[in-house]
């Protein structure tokens, strides 16, 4: 990467125009809406946005209204990376033929966890392999929230959703979350990052990097959902922060496949005593409430074990070792 780090102040960002505007109909306290707004503040010039079917597409473009100040297209659920491929191909050929007014146009594809982990992974994998120049943003609220909280490949172990309900026998989703960002790293694309709406500077910097880098960039953004996770809407950022602090959702990036921890997670590697227990995170959300019954307590242990296992694996990838694991 040849770019110089982007520096900015809160005031500069606040003063930038809103490209994803008020009047969208996301629920109060919506995590993904925060992510989209901030990401659009990190754009560097002419930008075209495409979105998969999902919460953010629905709430931002209820006909005849649109919350987008940039060109926007939605076509279907499973194909947003193919939309981006087509847009980027058109930009390339129009530039070659002298029909593009702008020197550069960035392409951003938004999709939720359903449109990415599950139904959209084929189109995403194909677009990544072909090397289209675009930034793919996965806003992960860990279930199909738009259609009423059905489980996805991004739903964490033990979470109760309407298709993985906590029953008398089965305590929520039996499977673990698919490591989607690592899967994208395995595509050997130039840039992959995880980000959280609890660290807005990090989110903006990574967005800008993803846009500046040539070729496919993928960013997995942690975006809690008050409705689906069952917590008070005021806690959206707080829960996102706890996700990072418990290492349930560590922040990192890969540049040309080289992993490095981002500051908010790096501090936890250097000072492991600051790494919080998963229970602190789980207890705030009623989607995990059943796990606190005596008969399902073991699931919390399983979650902690998996979080630790994945965290340690990440540390190895970042050439760091955990000093002491509590």
């Amino acid at each position: 990467m040849t770019t110089t780090p982007w520096k900015f102040t809160a005031k500069e960002i606040v003063e930038k125009p809103e490209l994803f505007t008020s009047g969208h109909r996301a629920c109060a306290g919506c995590g993904p809406a925060i992510a989209l707004r901030q990401i659009m503040k990190a754009t560097r010039g002419p930008t075209i946005v495409t979105s998969a079917t999902g919460c953010m597409e629905v709430v931002s473009t209820i006909y005849p209204y649109t919350a987008w100040k940039v060109p926007f297209i939605h076509t279907a659920f499973e194909n947003v990376a193919a939309n981006a491929s087509g847009i980027e191909a058109a930009l390339k050929v129009m530039k070659r033929k002298g029909r593009l007014e702008h020197e550069n146009v960035d392409v951003i594809a938004f999709a939720g966890d359903g449109g990415t982990f599950d139904i959209g992974i084929q189109a995403l994998s194909g677009a990544a392999e072909r090397g289209h120049d675009f930034l793919y943003i996965l806003y992960d609220n860990e279930a199909y929230m738009n259609t009423g909280i059905q489980r996805s490949g991004g739903t964490p172990h033990g979470a109760s959703t309407t298709t993985s309900p906590a029953g008398r026998v089965i305590p929520g989703k039996p499977q673990y979350k698919k490591p989607i960002a690592d899967i994208m790293v395995a595509h050997d694309i130039p840039y992959v990052a995880t980000a959280s709406i609890s660290s807005w500077q990090d989110l903006l910097v990574k967005t800008r990097k993803g846009l500046e880098i040539e070729g496919p960039a993928f960013m997995h953004v942690f975006t809690p959902c008050p409705r689906g996770w069952r917590y008070d809407p005021s806690k959206t950022i707080e829960i996102a922060r706890l996700g990072v602090e418990t290492c349930i959702f560590p922040l990192w990036e890969t540049i040309d496949g080289e992993y490095s921890l981002s500051p908010q997670s790096k501090i936890l590697a250097l000072k492991p005593e600051r790494k919080k227990k998963v229970t602190e995170y789980l207890k705030m959300q009623r989607r995990f409430r059943h796990l606190f019954k005596p008969e399902f307590k073991h699931v919390i242990d399983e979650i902690q074990q998996m979080v630790d296992k994945r965290w340690n694996r990440l540390l190895k990838r970042c050439n760091m070792t955990q000093a002491s694991q509590s």
Binding site: G86, A89, A90, V93, M94, Q122, A127, R130
Partner: peptide, 24 residues
């Protein structure tokens, strides 16, 4: 021409649709 050899027909038509929306 920009030729995109997609991973499926679903993506092939999608890419054409999106490129067409660009005026191509």
């Amino acid at each position: 021409t920009e030729f995109v050899c997609t991973e499926s027909e679903h993506s092939a038509l999608t890419a054409c649709l999106a490129a067409s929306a660009m005026g191509a």
